Computed example of a mutant assay.
Amino acid sequence: MKTLTLLRHAKSGWDDPALRDFDRPLNAKGQRAAQVVGRNLKTLGLTFDRVVASPAVRVVETLDHVGRGYGAAITPEWDKRLYLASVASLIDVIQEQANGVDRLLLVGHNPGLEELVLTLVPLAGDNPARADVEEKFPTASVAELHFAIDRWADAGANGATLARFVRPRDLDPGLGPSAD
C-alpha cells in the first residue's frame, strides 16, 4: 500500500503588484493556517518518507510554517515541475518515486492538485470528501490518498481511495473563506 498526501500552499498575498507570481509570499492568514495544518498533521500521526515540493516562495513559506506547527522541519526535494503543474506532470512525478517510499507528500498549487484528486479517486460511491474536493481545494488543505499498489509506477486514474480531506476551516472556523 502507498499513501500520497497532497498539500496546497497556504494563502499568499497580492500586496506587491511588481512581484512575479512565483515570488509571492504568504499573508498573515496563510501563515496561521499553515501552522494549524502542521499541528493537525502531527495530531494525526502523519509522517512522510519523502517530500517533493514546488520551489515557489509561497510553498517554501508554507512548509516552514507547517513545520513549526508539526514541531519538526519538513525538508523537501524541490522540483520545479510542481510549480503550477498539470495533472499529467503530477502523475509523472508520482510514478517516478522509488518503490521503497511508502508515504509521499507532494506540496504544490491549484488547479493541479484538485484535478489530481478528481483524476485519481473514482466518482463511484458516496464519498463526501471527494465532493468537497470537487467543490474546491482551498489553500492549505490536505488530501490523503491510499493506493493498493506496491509500485508508484502503477498509480493512475481511478486507482486511489480518498482517506481524508482537511481544510483549514475544518480545524479553525476563523480560517474560513469569510474570515480575514
Score class of each variant (00 low, 15 high):
residue 176 G to I: 05
residue 175 L to N: 12
residue 92 D to Y: 03
residue 151 R to P: 01
residue 37 V to I: 15
residue 136 K to E: 14
residue 121 V to D: 03
residue 135 E to G: 04
residue 109 H to G: 11
residue 147 F to K: 05
residue 34 A to S: 12
residue 17 P to D: 07
residue 157 A to L: 11
residue 167 R to G: 10
residue 115 E to G: 06
residue 120 L to T: 00
residue 9 H to I: 03
residue 13 G to F: 03
residue 4 L to V: 03
residue 32 R to M: 03
residue 126 D to H: 07
residue 175 L to S: 08
residue 41 L to A: 07
residue 72 A to Y: 01
residue 156 G to H: 10
residue 83 Y to Q: 10
residue 76 P to G: 05
residue 63 L to I: 10
residue 86 S to D: 14
residue 117 V to F: 00
residue 131 A to F: 02
residue 179 A to H: 13
residue 71 G to N: 12
residue 85 A to W: 01
residue 2 K to E: 04
residue 124 A to G: 09
residue 144 E to M: 11
residue 166 V to T: 15
residue 171 L to D: 15
residue 22 F to Y: 15
residue 119 T to L: 03
residue 144 E to F: 01
residue 161 T to D: 12
residue 69 G to L: 13
residue 94 I to C: 11
residue 89 S to W: 00
residue 151 R to G: 02
residue 42 K to Y: 08
residue 73 A to W: 04
residue 51 V to W: 07
residue 148 A to W: 00
residue 67 G to L: 09
residue 117 V to Y: 00
residue 36 V to R: 10
residue 103 R to A: 12
residue 151 R to N: 07
residue 119 T to M: 02
residue 31 Q to N: 09
residue 137 F to A: 10
residue 54 S to R: 03
residue 22 F to D: 08
residue 22 F to V: 14
residue 180 D to I: 13
residue 66 V to Y: 14
residue 15 D to W: 00
residue 68 R to Y: 00
residue 51 V to I: 15
residue 41 L to Q: 09
residue 75 T to R: 06
residue 121 V to M: 03
residue 59 V to W: 08
residue 39 R to A: 08
residue 131 A to I: 00
residue 42 K to I: 08
residue 5 T to I: 10
residue 118 L to N: 08
residue 10 A to L: 14
residue 164 R to T: 07
residue 178 S to F: 05
residue 62 T to N: 09
residue 71 G to W: 08
residue 8 R to M: 14
residue 10 A to P: 15
residue 82 L to K: 02
residue 115 E to N: 14
residue 180 D to P: 05
residue 42 K to S: 15
